[in-house]
Amino acid sequence: MKTNLSVPVLLVLASVFLSSCIKDTDFDEAEAIALTPVVELDLIYFNLTANDFFDSTTSNPRLTVRDTTELPFLDDGFAQEDLRKADFLFKFTNGIPRRFDVDFQFLDQENIETYSTQTNVDQGTPQNSQLTDFIKIVEGDDLIELTKASKVVVSVTIASSDENLEGELNLKSKTTYYLEL
């Protein structure tokens, strides 16, 4: 009698577990999960004075100054796969009474240019600095080229220069990275 009863009882219990199920769910939706963080990061900054554009030892104007920094995060796999858009904001404050051309040349590890952009900076005066904002939105094919680069060369070219020129040119910049992970 005992064993006869135990069989149905255990069967009932087993059926509770076996009948347990996961319903009304759609795990295919996992494919649609996307993290889309928007990350604000500082980029480069500089302070150039009018003296930087005149070589006092040779008494010749130095019309273009140039500097380079590596940006190794640009061409790593993470950026290449997950970056959807990059907005650059360059804020110039010009207290030098000259216009400037500024070039941003992005180079890959072989120093071959993959992407470039340029802008002009309005002239100001030491007493009344001129603000120039340059916004560059990079997406699509341009972004593919940008993320092949690992360094940027910044060239600042002054229209003309002499030893009496005064004032400062200042740059602040940031990038907004739109990611999709």
Partner: peptide, 11 residues
Amino acid sequence: TVNGIELIFPP
């Protein structure tokens, strides 16, 4: 604290 990369344009 980091403010980005300062370029100093050395000759």
